[in-house]
């Protein structure tokens, strides 16, 4: 009975202050570029989902009678050398780009998290091995590994996603190892343990909130990087195999045709550049708002 009276203090003693919501949105909102970026990214995601339905033509629909047309009401973004409607190509490309970028970032994150946790928790030789690998992956141009992987496994959506994902984990591994090391022996965890918290409670109440924001920021930085690599594969002719539309293919194609048909460049390159910038602005904004201490 005594415990019960302790658990329920007199009503007057309970402070009814409103717990401050994280307040991240009010901090985020201050950065105008980040707000613009978020708008564009949301639009990009929406188009990624509905793009194929609202596209006026199929991406593979060739119409030689309408080849190399400048932008018009019928073809707002013009057509390419075999009569593909550029607007439709772009609407389909958004989906491919998002699938590969999100998938690759997710794979990288999983591999990085697994290795980082292993290194951080085990320490010793495991830590040594992982950190050596991380150093190597940092210094080595992993893009070349992507090229070799794509040559071996093909140029479809899944192989490219896998190739970019499996080579891009070094940053996540380093981040998660660092967080694990910092938190594992931290005073906060020690105090919680001394108070008798269970392992589960420590994870949920103490570790996760501390790790969540840093991870979110790292993921936000990862997506534009993966988009860049994905389109970069197309620049050397090893990206998504045509006729699958992708920003990289369109930009590479525009590079060879820009002297005669510059509209082939305006829309794909413009939209791709704005997209990369928007993702980066969002990432910067998130970092400012969520993780003010964590510099990169």
């Amino acid at each position: 009975m005594a415990a019960k009276t302790l658990a329920a203090p007199p009503a007057g003693l309970v402070r009814k202050t409103k717990r401050p919501r994280f307040g991240w949105w009010s901090r985020y909102r201050r950065n105008k570029l980040a707000v613009f970026g978020l708008g564009w990214v949301v639009l990009f995601f929406i188009i990624g989902v509905i793009g194929p339905w609202i596209a006026p033509h199929n991406y593979a629909y060739t119409n030689f009678l309408a080849a190399n047309q400048p932008p018009s009401w019928q073809y707002p973004f013009g057509t390419d050398s075999v009569g593909h409607d550029m607007l439709s190509e772009i609407l389909w490309s958004v989906q491919n780009a998002l699938e590969i970028a999100l998938g690759a970032t997710f794979i990288s994150f999983l591999v990085g998290a697994a290795l980082g946790l292993w290194a951080g928790l085990k320490g010793g030789i495991a830590d040594q091995i992982v950190m050596r690998l991380v150093d190597f992956m940092y210094a080595f141009p992993t893009y070349f590994l992507d090229l070799i992987l794509v040559t071996t496994f093909g140029r479809g959506l899944a192989p490219i996603m896998f190739a970019i994902g499996i080579t891009g984990w070094a940053g996540y591994a380093r981040l998660i190892r660092g967080l694990t090391l910092r938190l594992r022996e931290g005073e906060m965890v020690e105090a919680a343990r001394a108070l008798g918290s269970t392992q589960r409670h420590i994870m949920i109440a103490y570790l996760w909130p501390n790790v969540r924001n840093s991870m979110l920021v790292a993921l936000a930085f990862g997506i534009p990087g993966d988009l860049t690599v994905m389109a970069g594969l197309s620049v050397v002719g090893m990206g998504l195999r045509p006729p699958l539309p992708s920003f990289g293919n369109m930009i590479a194609q525009a590079g060879t045709n820009v002297l005669g048909f510059p509209w082939l460049l305006y829309f794909p390159a413009g939209i791709f550049a704005i997209t990369l910038l928007s993702f980066l602005f969002v990432a910067e904004g998130l970092q400012e708002a969520l993780d003010p201490k964590g510099g990169r």
């Binding site: 970069g232 620049v235 590479a252 590079g255 460049l265 550049a273 990369l276």
Partner: peptide, 11 residues
């Protein structure tokens, strides 16, 4: 930093 060299190149 955000815009890759190939996009700058075609521009």
């Amino acid at each position: 930093q955000a815009i890759p060299s190939y996009v700058l190149g075609v521009i």
